[in-house]
Write a protein that binds this DNA or RNA. Structure first.
Length: 876
RNA sequence: GGGAGCAUAGCUCAGCUGGUUUAGAGCAUCUGCCUUACAAGCAGAGGGUCCGCGGUUCGAACCCGUGUGCUCCCACCA
């Protein structure tokens, strides 16, 4: 078969993916083999493939494919997350385009649109993963709002409520006054704003001198003074100590508020006195709780002043900010006004200035749940890669705060709390159950009067069940699959969700399965652009992944992203890595072409061409590298493993081995050489397969008829390695490079033949490599000599001297220069080694092996010097 | 403000337990080659104050301290 000039990935990739899928290689069911299970971090159902997914899923695929070839029953579970906020926003936007306002729809109508949207557009990303070659078990595709899954989420809520871990409580949230909705922290964008810092003097109750002075606070939000509940100073602030415990009067309305002391206050900011408005500031609310201050909510949900404000009722808070200052000034409260730049939150959706607002939310108490989860990581039952994230994890877990799980959204798992008209409620799986429970205290309660909580649960409240619920661990307890696949083996995720997701999965794992959810966690880096910016949709700096796959091939994309990404380190994405991957494809493709040509010329080869050394060397070199790679894979050093394989294939196999065994022009090749070469190539392809599955499968089948596919082929055991043979190969490489360098430096044309004379004490050492050496440096003859050869190029390598004799030789001075440079270098080196050896303390303290090595270095350097000096003498 | 991390060739980064023949790779650069697998290639070469300073050690890119510069996460000071 005629092969194309270059490797053409697109057809090959779709062909093999379809084939693998058809054969069901990626499907897993429990059997006698040990399991290796991985659950995908479920991408948002709204998502499209970006570089982060590409990195993350390539890593998982490498681990899963490697495990499969190691003989594990590998199971990689795909799925998507309902992503309440993101999806609801998309659906709202879609409706808006169609001229439908969310507020005009009932909850059920809205959800119907949402499901339609999900069925149509959701899960595009899963299709895209197929393009990348991900070996997922598609029959297991899960969704966090599947029926069983939904029920489990509700069951967990009810269970935690019964155990007392879930409670209802007030909380400050970010409020969007335009959309009249709560915002999650992620939806608030902080911007620098030019504000004014007003210094306002409050009167103090009483008639003494201190009261006459009053107390001056600084604020950028003077309209909120109407909701003031206290003034707070630092306990050790000498200026105010005498005022603590007394009362101040709120300007304009003369409400009496206490002066309290707390270390929260920064003495050197503003005046060192802080007005406390618990209803309208996150931190003030905390102070309010601590000192049991009155909470005066002076604002309506649309941002206008409420009746509680007593002044400006019905006017917008930003208008009031302008209007209240002249009043304060007129009444003598304004001490001074400073220009001030501060950070203010704005709504991502409406750009409205966000208002902190108090509301009733559902919470999970974290204290008890977090304990086993912290211990599991600190005791290394769960291993983090890289381990540096352990510190971060501990710090967070030790300072963990309760988790607010309610969201003012419709798309998601609806909170299973049911309210009677009097405000009492029951937590239950259905309205019927709730009715029964409520009837115990309210026998006359009508079922129709019961209302379910309008809010949904935080997305993470469902995804924390992911590692076991994809196997129905909770909905069908103790089923065969959960017993077989759980705990899963490795979780691959981004460090930014270590708290949102990883920590919580560990907690849920212990709480509901009594066991850790995974044994290893591999944290990927963040993919950045060339300028170091995080790739994101809003910056528009994320390249179109499918276009890249079209251009370079999926294998090259996988190569490009993996070669630059050690665990936990950010990667700067650069297309040059993909080019390297594509070139690597071509390199292997061309090696295939070469070997295919040989097939036509198998026959009796010339006895002088003895490639036995090359074959034996490569066999050991290959096994040596297989060992290295296996150890790197164990340690999750995937990037290094790939580099090692790349260099083994390109340098050792293509550049050295194939050249060494290659027959001369139109010469036949021995059948044994051909067979062994194919065997090595197959092993190389297998080693690379987890990283670049498509091209390896393709070449594997083109090399010769195969009994099975590469992706299911088990690795063979690695035989013992003869390191002498490996070293002999390295020496041969060194000789070839050294002699080629001498040829170039002396301006010999590549085609100019030479006669190589070797002056050595160990002629035998050259037996095996003589013919290879001759071919690689274009020597027509190789012989030994006891004395320098006149009018030749002299080269000193290790302890031996080499003379390149040729008719075209011209004295250029280049060789003398090379020798003298080398000599100087050796002298310097020798001096360094001797300094060490002459240091008594070194000889006394260093390990014997180290000293032995230094002695060897000294002896080698001496021998080298002798060789070089003799060479120079021969020249002169 | 709290926490974590980084600084090694022009660029992007490896360098594991301190000692492996005076620090490695890819890209870029330079020289020579269109050699019947491959010019997206081959054969070579050059390129380093391992951020500065101090310390520990027989020995430091690696350990400790300190300074400088940068990055990320968390919290958002009225």
């Amino acid at each position: 078969m005629e092969l194309s000039k270059n490797y053409l990935p697109s057809e090959v990739e779709s062909k093999w993916y379809a084939h693998w899928n058809e054969k069901g290689y990626f499907n897993s069911t429990p059997d006698d083999r040990p399991a290796y299970s991985v659950v995908i971090p479920p991408p948002n159902v709204t998502g499209v493939l970006h570089m982060g997914h590409c990195l993350n899923n390539t890593i998982q695929d490498i681990l899963v494919r490697d495990a499969r070839m190691k003989g594990y029953n590998a199971c990689w579970v795909p799925g998507t997350d309902h992503a309440s906020i993101a999806t609801e926003a998309k659906v709202v936007a879609m409706l808006r385009e169609r001229g439908i306002a969310k507020s005009s729809l009932s909850r059920d109508e809205f959800l119907q649109y949402a499901w339609e949207w999900k069925d149509k557009y959701g899960g595009i990303i899963l299709q895209q993963l197929k393009k990348m070659g991900c070996s997922l078990d598609w029959d297991r595709t899960s969704f966090t709002m599947d029926d069983d899954y939904y029920k489990s989420v509700i069951q967990v809520f009810i269970d935690l409520y019964k155990k007392g871990h879930i409670y209802r409580g007030k909380r400050m949230i970010h409020w969007d006054v335009k959309a009249k909705t709560a915002l999650s922290d992620e939806e608030v964008i902080y911007k620098e704003v030019n504000s004014k810092l007003f210094h306002l003097r409050y009167h103090i109750e009483g008639e003494d001198a201190a009261a006459q002075m009053g107390i001056t606070i600084a604020t950028v939000r003077p309209e909120t003074i109407l909701g003031d509940a206290a003034i707070c100073v630092h306990p050790s602030d000498a200026r105010y100590q005498h005022l603590v415990g007394r009362f101040a009067l709120v300007p304009l309305i003369n409400r009496r508020i206490p002066i309290i002391a707390d270390e929260y206050v920064t003495p050197d900011f503003g005046t060192g006195a802080l007005k406390v408005t618990p209803a309208h500031d996150m931190n003030d609310y905390q102070l309010g709780l601590k000192y049991q201050l009155e909470i005066i909510d002076t604002m309506e949900d649309d941002g206008t002043m409420s009746a509680a404000a007593t002044l400006f009722v019905g006017e917008d808070r930003l208008e009031v900010r302008k209007k209240i200052i002249p009043l304060l000034e007129a009444a003598g409260h304004l001490v001074k006004t400073e220009e001030y730049i501060n950070q203010v939150g704005f709504s991502e959706r409406t750009d409205a200035m966000v208002e902190p607002r108090l509301s009733l939310q559902w919470w999970v108490s974290m204290k008890t749940l977090s304990k086993p989860a912290l211990a599991a990581v600190m005791d290394d039952q769960i291993h983090f890669h890289p381990a540096k994230f352990k510190n971060l994890y501990r710090h967070w877990m030790e300072n963990i705060k309760d988790w607010c799980i309610s969201r003012q959204l419709w798309w998601g798992h609806r909170i299973p709390a049911y309210y009677a008209p009097d405000g009492s409620f029951a937590v239950a799986a259905s309205v019927e159950e709730a009715w029964e429970m409520l009837q115990q205290t309210q026998p006359d309660l009508l079922k129709a009067s019961i209302r379910q909580d309008e809010d949904c649960l935080d997305t993470w409240f469902s995804s924390w069940l992911w590692p076991f619920e994809v196997f129905h661990g909770l909905s069908q307890p103790n089923n065969a699959e959960i017993k077989y696949y759980y705990p899963t083996n490795t979780l691959v995720t981004a460090p930014e969700i270590i708290f949102f997701w990883v920590a919580r999965m560990i907690m849920a794992g212990y709480e509901y399965m009594g066991e850790l959810p995974f044994k290893d966690v591999y944290f990927t880096g963040i993919v950045r652009d060339k300028l170091g910016r995080k790739m994101s949709k809003s910056l528009g700096n994320s390249p179109d992944l499918l276009a890249l796959i079209d251009q370079y091939g999926a294998d090259a994309v996988r190569f490009g992203i993996m070669i630059a990404s050690p665990a936990g380190n950010d990667i700067l994405f650069d297309e040059s890595g993909l080019e390297q991957g594509r070139n690597f494809n071509n390199k292997m493709w061309n090696a295939l072409k070469l070997i295919q040509m040989w097939k036509l010329r198998i026959g009796h080869a010339d006895e002088s061409a003895k490639p036995d050394f090359a074959m034996n060397w490569f066999e050991h070199r290959l096994n040596h590298t297989r060992k290295e790679v296996a150890s790197m894979m164990e340690q999750f050093r995937l990037s290094e493993a790939l580099k090692t394989i790349y260099s083994l294939i390109w340098d050792d196999f293509c550049s050295w081995y194939l050249e060494w065994v290659k027959p001369g022009f139109e010469q036949p090749i021995q059948a044994a050489v051909y067979e062994r070469t194919i065997g090595y190539f197959e092993q190389l392809l297998q080693l690379l397969h987890p990283f670049m599955p498509f091209i390896t499968e393709e070449i594997y089948h083109l090399l010769q008829q195969q009994p099975s596919d590469l992706c299911t082929k088990p690795y063979t055991q690695i035989p013992d390695i003869d390191s002498n043979l490996v070293n002999a190969g390295e020496l041969l490489k060194q000789l070839i490079s050294g002699l080629r360098d001498a040829r170039i430096k002396n301006q010999l044309k590549p085609k100019t033949p030479v006669h190589l004379h070797i002056q050595t004490n160990e002629e035998k050492q050259y037996d095996a490599i003589r013919s290879i050496l001759a071919k690689q440096i274009n020597a027509t003859e190789v012989s030994f000599t006891n004395e320098p050869i006149a009018k030749s190029i002299v080269v000193a390598i290790e302890k031996d001297r080499f003379y390149l004799e040729t008719a075209e030789f011209q004295e250029t001075g280049a060789q003398l220069e090379t020798l003298q440079k080398d000599l100087a270098h050796q002298h310097q080196f020798l001096e360094q080694v001797r300094k060490k050896l002459q240091n008594e303390r070194f000889v006394q303290n260093a390990k014997p092996e180290v000293i032995e090595l230094e002695r060897k270095k000294e002896a080698d350097a001496l021998a080298r010097i002798q060789t070089i000096e003799a060479s120079i003498a021969g020249l002169q």
